[in-house]
Design a protein around this nucleic acid. Sequence first.
DNA 1: TGTACATCAGTGAACGCGCGTTCACTGATGTAC
DNA 2: TGTACATCAGTGAACGCGCGTTCACTGATGTAC
Lengths: 254, 254
Amino acid sequence: VVTASSEDRTGTGSPRSAPRTARARARIELTRDITEAARRQLAEVGAAHLSLRAVARELGMASSAVYRYFASRDELLTALIVDAYDAIGETAERTDEDAVRAGASPIDRWRSVCRAVRDWAIAHPHEWALVYGSPVTGYAAPQDTVVPAGRMARVLATIATDAHDRGTAGVPSGTAGPPPDDLLAADVTALFDGAGPGFAERGLLTWISLIGAINFELFGHLHNVVEATDSYFDWAMDTTAELLGMLESGGAAG
Amino acid sequence: VVTASSEDRTGTGSPRSAPRTARARARIELTRDITEAARRQLAEVGAAHLSLRAVARELGMASSAVYRYFASRDELLTALIVDAYDAIGETAERTDEDAVRAGASPIDRWRSVCRAVRDWAIAHPHEWALVYGSPVTGYAAPQDTVVPAGRMARVLATIATDAHDRGTAGVPSGTAGPPPDDLLAADVTALFDGAGPGFAERGLLTWISLIGAINFELFGHLHNVVEATDSYFDWAMDTTAELLGMLESGGAAG
DNA sequence: TGTACATCAGTGAACGCGCGTTCACTGATGTAC
DNA sequence: TGTACATCAGTGAACGCGCGTTCACTGATGTAC
């Protein structure tokens, strides 16, 4: 509990290097304690019923004390959103790094990352829903969430462009026409730069399909529809990879 | 307001033919008034903040009076969910019927239905989120929602099988392997019956992608990512149709 | 190293609000004879 | 057609609960000299 310094939330704009004073150290710890308690509560009751008072209660402090650390309930929610995006992004990044280190092909990296992200979602359904489910009414996500939200997308883009560079991905021939120009923001196109027209749009679509497939399952729409959800997800993500032409050499036969 | 008899919610198990007495007629009308007021409120504040008291207030009645019509808040929510599924299903059905009547090809029917459903979602974001967004915590959807939930899926399945019957759809060759057997529930396979192995699984995946694309946009994840959301959606659904081999003869060039 | 002052963390009470649900009751509508 | 009784709709008060946020205050920690 003492040396956990992997996170740098301080609750203030303090320099990230040295918690000089005892006060500063206590502040860092308590900020972490609060977000952790909030995360636990989120996991139980969902974002809509997340309550500052209940968080304070769990920590044995007055509800007003929480305001020394978060200016409002919304700010606490924002912290949880950022944390969730980061956790998902880190899962994706680590999974892909491991796969690369093991010499996996791009399609296998794609498979691994999809599974890892889905596993995370199943393990943390309310946190997942907080970021990829219906927006919390009356809450507007601030700018802080933009970068963490992009981490997972960046991993997928890297896999797609790596595959393209090796000649194992591209816009399949004989398919739907290319998209009109300038559909995407420049940042997004840049992620897939050099991979030719239509590739970025397809890459984005695979991302959307991944999130969509997880949501569909998590939100209960596969009940009475799919019997073997694990296998169906794996197959669906393989099939989605067709969009990027990543399965020329044949997937596993069933 | 008097002759609107297209719906048959009575709030009781009364016979659907004749509202004999004045009481029975009043009950039908008030039940409808309540669900409409609830729907208006849902559109404003979202499902999480839907309040029986506020609904009663809007109708100028005591909050306890609502309990003569709905046994609990959950039951009111269920009615709204059923209504939303029905509205979406009806939109899909009507759009497809119109397209068929106009002699549209399956791929054009698919395009039309996708657009119509997306338009509905954009026009009714909170109702959409109520059925396809994160589940409301502490609420378990009862069996009543199963049939209405399937209406839209049935439309999509019909389009796919029609295309297959005409030879303009099928599992594309040279793609990912077929799925293992028995992934899907028998009911679902039956919807695509006769169209060969893998076809039902792919059909389901297009459905998931449609819902996922709409959710992704509606929940704000295309901000700073896609500039032209209308065009991107149209293109994405065209590209999704590749999964069913529905674009052999080339889509519109960009 | 020691003192004087400023800063900060945490408390507990309060404000003002809204919620779902129950219950005894009144008055109107429906039904059986 | 008229009366007696049963059913139902709607009221208003109440129960018990929880929430976010503010504020004046106490006591501890940090800082400047």
